[in-house]
Simulated assay, not measured.
Amino acid sequence: MNDRTQPTTTKAPQPTDVVMQMVMGAWVSQSISTLTRLDVPDRLKDHGPQSVEELTQTLSVDAKPEFLERLLRACSSIGLFNEGADGRFGITPLSEVLTSDSPVSLKKLTEVFGASWWQLWGGLEDALRTGQSQPIALFGMNYWEYCLSNPKEMADFAAAMKANSLNSMRGVLEHCDFSQIKKVVDVGGGAGHLAIALVKQYPHLQAVVLDLPELMPIAQQQIQGEDENITQRLKLVGGDMFQAVPEADVYILKHIMHDWDDAQCLQILKNCRQSMTGDGRLLCVDAVLPPMGNTQGTPAKFLDVDMIVFGGGKERTEEQWRELYATAGFELIAITPLQDNFGTSIVEGKKPEHQA
């Protein structure tokens, strides 16, 4: 009899197992979003491990205890929470990033994924077949109009974009030198988070936030309480980037270009080119897709599909970026990858030497 211990062979997952895990990802996404909207991660972080009775009765989580327990057990099975034999659930490093005060909080982004965006993605098949924007199909208006007509959606979207932009904003501050720049315009700058960070880091810098007039009250609220030295060097301009942009040395378009088709992007870039002063620079902060045949870049590629759902925009390869820049009168001089949620890069352009 051979009593040697035989090596354990790990059985490779079957294709059906892998595909089922992928398909059930939609359930996982909605489960995480729902628990986050109910503030469960925040409650567990603030109060420590809790039973579902404590969560619902003492900490005001709006759910039936027996159903909440079933959902928490499912999410604990993927590492989102700790599950004790005593029926208490606790936070883990995964659910910590879903809390409000996490420095890398995904709370608001996760919440919008499971709310209106969840509805819109249900129309993916129709979008592929017809090319129709799903916000128009579902709401009767494009997504920006929907946000403007629904203050809560606008507030949630702004908070989600702030959270999503934190890493890309840090990337701009880390990789781009504005020490010799006099004035920068953040085109489509929303609530002004990047512009505020720039004028804080560079005491000489003037910054302009350009966005829709309807967004200016949100930006104004954002700068309230800032030091006078900051607010004096920060200007909020309500306008239309398709019509004109303020004069500046550098233009930043962070998570803007992917929302629009090539013709619309060209109009924005040509406006920047026309108003650019001196040896200016153009900084587009967006995804750069790998070339055909390269199967990496999953987050950016699914974000590209998201643009199909929302209608009109797309992510671009390096070759497509170069062509877009050249047509608008810029030379692409550098692509700097950033570590963020969607594989974003800084795509830097300048005026060609003979045109400067």
Rank of each mutant, 00 (worst) to 15 (best):
Q6G: 06
T10K: 08
V18G: 00
M22T: 13
M22E: 09
V23W: 13
G25V: 08
A26C: 10
W27Q: 14
V28W: 11
L35F: 03
P41S: 13
L44I: 12
V52D: 09
T56W: 10
Q57W: 08
D62L: 14
E66A: 14
F67V: 15
L68A: 07
E69Q: 15
R70P: 00
L71W: 13
C75T: 15
S77Y: 02
S77C: 04
G79V: 00
E83R: 14
G84A: 15
G87K: 14
R88C: 13
T92L: 05
T92K: 10
P93E: 06
V97K: 04
P103I: 03
S116D: 08
W117I: 07
W118P: 00
L120Y: 07
A127V: 12
R129T: 13
P135A: 09
M141N: 06
E145I: 01
C147Q: 13
C147G: 10
S149Y: 00
P151L: 06
A158Q: 08
A158P: 00
A160W: 02
S168L: 02
S168K: 01
V172N: 07
V172T: 05
L173A: 05
D177K: 14
S179K: 13
H193V: 02
H193E: 14
H193I: 02
Y202P: 11
P203S: 12
L205D: 06
Q206R: 15
L210W: 03
L210S: 06
I218R: 09
A219K: 08
A219L: 12
Q222S: 12
Q222K: 11
I223A: 11
G225S: 08
D227P: 03
E228R: 13
T231M: 14
R233L: 11
A244G: 03
P246H: 08
H255Y: 03
I256N: 04
M257Q: 05
M257S: 06
H258G: 06
D262I: 01
A263H: 08
I268M: 07
N271R: 07
Q274S: 13
S275E: 01
S275K: 09
M276C: 14
L283W: 01
D286L: 01
D286W: 04
A287Q: 14
V288R: 05
M292A: 06
N294H: 07
G297H: 06
P299N: 06
F302M: 11
F302E: 03
V305K: 02
D306P: 00
D306K: 00
G312S: 07
G313P: 10
E319P: 02
Q320F: 09
Q320E: 15
E323H: 11
Y325A: 12
G329C: 06
I333Q: 02
I333C: 01
I333N: 01
D340N: 05
I346Q: 08
E348I: 04
G349E: 05
E353S: 10
